[in-house]
Design a protein around this nucleic acid. Structure first.
Length: 757
DNA sequence: GTTTCGTAAATTTTT
DNA sequence: TTTACGAAAC
C-alpha cells in the first residue's frame, strides 16, 4: 500500500483529487478509476473536514467496504490529524447499521441485546421453518430458498412480492414467499437479525419514527461512501435518507462492480446524479499504480463490456514487463510453476514475497496453491479462506456466549445444546421445539420449564433443565464479570479442553484457537464506549459476526498473499498472479450462461488485473480436479481479449515432457525437474502454438483426439475414465481388426499423432 | 425408539 | 467442514 508523507498529503493531490477533497458542501460523485488514489482522497477529505472545517468527528458517517479498510482509513486519518479521530462513525454498512440499531432496537420491538445471525444461522432457521411448514427440503433446496429471500430483501420487496407475477407452477418461489413471511416473526421472536435485516431495519425505523430519522440527519452532517458501485438498493436508500441534507460524497467505479449476485446495483451511480440534484461529478482517471502494460491488459478485457459509464485511465509509467501467460498441465503443476517462478524472482532480488499476490476465482483453488507453497517452503499468507470465527470450536463457544447474551437465540441454543453431547438428540429437540412453538417461548425458556412437557421422559427433562441451569448461571455471572472470565468458566463447566483433546492431535490445534478466542475476548473487555451501544459482550459478538473475510489472515506476514479476487478488491501488489483462467472456472460456467453474469465476471477479471503495479502473471491449466474429477480446461475467453503485443506465452515443463500422463507425471516432475536453471519453462511464440490448439491435449488425452499405438497403429479416443495412474482411455483403432480397446495410459505408451508427425 | 458415530458427498464469489 | 445417511450401541 502506498505510504504518503503525513503532513503534506494535500500537496501530493492532483487537480481532480484536490477538487474532490475541497468540494465540501453539496453532493459529490467521484468516478474513481482503479489505482487513481481514491483512498487517499477519502482520507484527505475526512481529515480536511475535521481539521480545516472544524467538523466534529462524531458528525461524520463514513462507509467502507470492509472493517479492515475502515481500520486502516481511521489510522491514516489519525496520522494526518496527528490525533485519534475518536467519535468518527466509520465502518461497513452492516457494522454501522448494527451500531445504530443497538441504540434504537426497542423502538422496533427488538431487545438491545439482539444477536446477528450469520449465513449458517439463517440457513438453519430456513430449514427449520421449512420442516415446520411442511415444505420438503429435498424438493426445494434451502439454499435456493434462502437466495430468493435474500434477493427480495435486497430489493426491499416484501414476502408477498416474491410470489407475484410468478407462474403458479413455480413452487420454489411460492415456498420461498411462505418461508420469507414466516421468517420475520421467527427472527423477531429470537431477537435476531440477519445480514439483510441490518440494512432493512434502519429503513423501517426511519419510516415508523420520523423523529429518529431527523435526529440522525441532524447528527451526521457529512456522509461518505466508498465502493459505491457495490451498494444495493437498501443501502442506497439508507444513504438517500440520512444524506437528505445533500452533504454526501460517493466514490465508485462502475467497472469494478462485482457484487451483483448479492444485490449490488450499479444503477445507484446513475441514480445518485438524479436523486441528489446539483451533484458534482469528479473523474479520477490518472492511474498511479500500474505500468502501461498492465493497463493495456486490463483495458483490453474491460473494453468488451457494454453499458459502461466510460472513462480513460492513463498512467505515466510507460512500458513495463510483459504479461506472462502460462499454460500448465493441471492445478498442481500450475501451483508448482507459480511457486517456482515467485521463488526465482525473489531470489533474483526483483521483489520480496510480501510484494506478491496469487489470486483465484474460488476458494477451492487455494488448496493446491497452499500445498505448492508448503512443499517448496515458500512463505505465504492465506486471507479469508476460513475465518477464525467460522472454526467449529470457536462457533461452539460463541453459541454459548450468544445464548448468554440473548436467551431467545434459538440457533445458538441448538448448537450449544449439542456440544458436548448430552443425550439429547434430534427427536428430543424436535419435541422441545414443538412445545416452544405452542408456548410461544424461546427454546431456552422451554428447556428451563421442561418439567411441563409430558412427552419427554424424566431423564430428558432433567437434561434440558440442567442445560438451562448452566446457561442461567453463566448469564448471572456475565452481568458483572468480563467476557473473558465468563468464557473461561464456561470452558471449565463443559470441560471443553478435555473434549477437544479427546479428538486426537487435531484437538490440540483447536485448543490453540480457543486460547486465541480467550485472548481476543480479553482485549475487548478493555474498550469502553457508550453503554447505549451495548455491553462489551454484545459488542464482542457483533464484531465476531461482522468480521469480513479479508480480516482473517493465516500465515506469515512476510509471505506471498493468497486470496480470492473478490477479497482483493481495493488492494494492490507489485506482482500479481491470476490463476485458473479457464472457461467454466473464470468465467464460471454459471455466469457464462447469462450476459449480465459474464459482464460481471469480466469486471472481476478487470479488478484482478488492475491490482498489479509492475508485473502480471496469468495462468491456466489444461486439466483441473473439480469435485474429485479430472476435467479438461480450455483457456479463458478473457485471455483472447489481451493485446498479443504485451504477452509472453509459456508452458510448464510438465507439459513438454514426453509421456506425461494425467497427474502421475506431475508428481515425478516435482521431485527432479531441472526447472530452476532455465526458469522451468520454455517460451512459445504465439504463432507456433496458438493457445486454442494447446488446449486440445488436456488432459494429455482428450475425447476425439488422434493417438498412435506401437502395435495397434492410429486410432481415435472415444472416452476417458479414472485419474492419475488409473487413467484409462478407450481407443477406436483405425484397423478394424483391432477395434476398440481399453488402455491404461500409464502403460500403453501412446503417442499423439501431431507429436510423432 | 433414540442417540451417536462412522463414512461419503459436496461448496461461487461474501457482509 | 458441514450434512446426510446408515449402522451400531444404548
Amino acid at each position: 500500500m502506498i505510504e504518503t508523507p503525513t503532513s503534506s498529503l494535500e500537496h501530493a493531490l492532483n487537480p481532480a483529487q484536490r477538487e474532490a477533497v475541497e468540494h465540501v458542501h453539496g453532493p459529490l460523485l467521484v468516478l474513481a478509476g482503479a489505482g487513481s488514489g481514491k483512498t487517499r482522497v477519502l482520507t484527505a477529505r475526512i481529515a480536511a473536514l475535521i481539521d480545516r472545517h472544524g467538523v466534529p468527528p462524531e458528525r461524520i458517517f463514513a462507509v467502507t467496504f470492509t472493517n479492515k479498510a475502515a481500520g486502516e482509513m481511521k489510522q491514516r486519518i489519525g496520522r494526518l490529524l496527528e490525533r485519534d479521530p475518536s467519535g468518527l462513525w466509520i465502518g461497513t454498512f452492516h457494522s454501522l447499521s448494527a451500531r445504530l440499531l443497538r441504540r434504537e432496537a426497542e423502538l422496533l420491538g427488538f431487545g438491545r441485546q439482539f444477536t446477528i445471525y450469520d449465513e449458517d444461522d439463517r440457513l438453519s432457521l430456513i430449514k427449520r421453518l421449512m420442516d415446520q411448514r411442511g415444505h420438503s427440503t429435498k424438493l426445494f433446496p434451502p439454499r435456493a430458498v434462502q437466495s430468493l429471500i435474500s434477493g427480495a430483501k435486497n430489493r426491499m420487496a416484501p414476502p408477498a412480492e416474491l410470489a407475484v407475477g410468478v407462474s403458479q407452477f413455480d413452487r420454489l418461489a411460492q415456498v420461498a414467499a411462505d418461508v420469507y413471511a414466516a421468517m420475520g416473526p421467527a427472527l423477531k421472536a429470537a431477537n435476531a437479525m440477519d445480514f439483510d435485516d441490518l440494512l432493512l431495519h434502519p429503513l423501517a425505523l426511519f419510516r415508523e419514527h420520523p423523529d429518529r430519522l431527523r435526529a440522525y440527519q441532524a447528527r451526521f452532517n457529512f456522509i461518505l461512501v466508498d465502493e459505491f458501485q457495490d451498494t444495493n438498493r437498501a443501502q442506497y436508500e439508507l444513504i438517500r435518507l440520512l444524506g437528505a441534507h445533500g452533504n454526501v460524497c460517493a466514490v465508485g467505479d462502475d467497472d469494478q462492480s462485482i457484487y451483483g449476485w448479492r444485490g449490488a446495483d450499479v444503477r445507484n451511480m446513475q441514480d445518485f446524479l438524479k436523486d441528489f440534484s446539483g451533484a458534482r461529478l469528479v473523474r479520477l482517471e490518472e492511474n498511479y499504480r500500474s505500468t502501461q502494460v498492465v493497463l493495456d491488459a486490463a483495458n483490453g478485457v474491460i473494453a468488451e463490456n457494454t453499458g459502461r459509464i466510460g472513462k480513460t485511465l492513463t498512467t505515466r509509467r510507460s512500458g513495463g514487463e510483459a504479461v506472462t501467460l502460462v499454460a500448465a498441465a493441471d492445478e498442481r503443476d500450475e501451483a508448482e510453476w507459480v511457486v517456482r517462478e515467485l521463488e526465482r524472482r525473489s531470489a533474483a532480488g526483483d521483489w520480496s514475497y510480501a510484494e506478491m499476490a496469487v489470486l483465484y476465482r474460488t476458494n477451492a483453488q487455494s488448496r493446491a496453491l497452499e500445498e505448492g507453497f508448503r512443499r517448496a517452503g515458500v512463505p505465504y499468507r492465506l486471507i479469508g479462506a476460513i475465518s477464525f470465527y467460522e472454526r467449529r470450536e470457536v462457533k461452539d463457544l460463541l453459541a454459548y456466549l450468544r445464548l448468554i447474551a440473548n436467551p431467545a437465540d434459538d440457533e445458538a441454543f441448538l448448537r450449544a445444546v449439542a456440544v458436548p453431547r448430552r443425550g439429547l438428540g434430534d427427536t428430543s429437540l424436535a419435541t422441545l421445539g414443538r412445545t416452544a412453538a405452542q408456548w410461544s417461548k424461546p427454546l431456552l425458556d422451554t428447556a428451563r420449564a421442561s418439567d411441563g412437557i409430558a412427552e419427554l421422559r424424566p431423564n430428558l427433562r432433567e437434561a434440558f433443565r440442567a442445560f438451562a441451569g448452566l446457561i442461567d448461571g453463566l448469564a448471572q455471572r456475565a452481568r458483572h464479570l468480563p467476557t473473558a472470565d465468563v468464557l473461561e468458566q464456561l470452558i471449565r463447566a463443559i470441560d471443553y479442553e478435555a473434549l477437544l483433546h479427546a479428538e486426537g492431535p487435531e484437538g490440540a490445534d483447536r485448543w490453540e484457537n480457543v486460547r486465541e478466542l480467550l485472548a481476543s475476548a480479553a482485549n475487548w473487555s478493555e474498550v469502553v464506549t457508550d453503554e447505549s451501544e451495548g455491553t462489551p459482550l454484545e459488542r464482542f459478538l457483533a464484531e465476531a459476526a461482522l468480521l469480513s473475510s479479508g480480516d482473517t489472515v493465516v500465515g506469515r506476514e512476510d509471505g506471498v498473499t493468497l486470496m480470492t479476487l473478490h477479497t482483493a478488491k481495493g488492494l494492490e501488489w507489485p506482482v500479481v498472479v491470476l490463476t485458473g483462467l479457464e472457461n467454466g472456472l473464470f468465467p464460471l460456467a454459471r455466469a457464462e450462461e447469462q450476459p449480465d453474469g459474464l459482464e460481471e465476471e469480466r469486471r472481476l477479471c478487470y479488478v484482478g488485473l488492475t491490482r498489479a503495479k509492475d508485473k502480471l502473471y496469468l495462468t491456466w491449466a489444461r486439466a483441473r480436479r473439480r469435485g474429485g474429477e479430472l476435467r479438461p480446461g480450455i483457456p479463458s475467453r478473457f485471455l483472447r481479449a489481451l493485446p498479443p503485443a504485451i504477452l509472453d506465452e509459456r508452458r510448464t515443463t510438465a507439459l513438454w515432457a514426453p509421456g506425461w500422463t494425467g497427474g502421475q507425471a506431475v508428481g515425478r516432475a516435482g521431485g527432479q525437474q531441472p526447472g530452476r536453471r532455465s526458469g522451468a519453462s520454455l517460451t512459445v511464440r504465439p504463432s507456433d502454438r496458438p493457445t486454442e490448439e494447446l488446449s486440445q491435449d488436456a488432459p494429455r488425452y482428450v475425447k476425439g483426439e488422434r493417438v498412435r499405438h506401437r502395435r495397434f497403429g492410429g486410432g481415435t479416443i472415444q472416452g476417458l475414465t479414472g485419474t492419475g495412474r488409473d487413467l484409462k482411455v478407450s481407443v477406436a483403432f483405425d484397423d478394424v481388426e483391432v477395434g476398440v480397446k481399453q488402455l491404461l495410459v500409464a502403460y500403453a505408451g501412446l503417442e499423439r499423432e501431431w507429436e510423432s508427425a
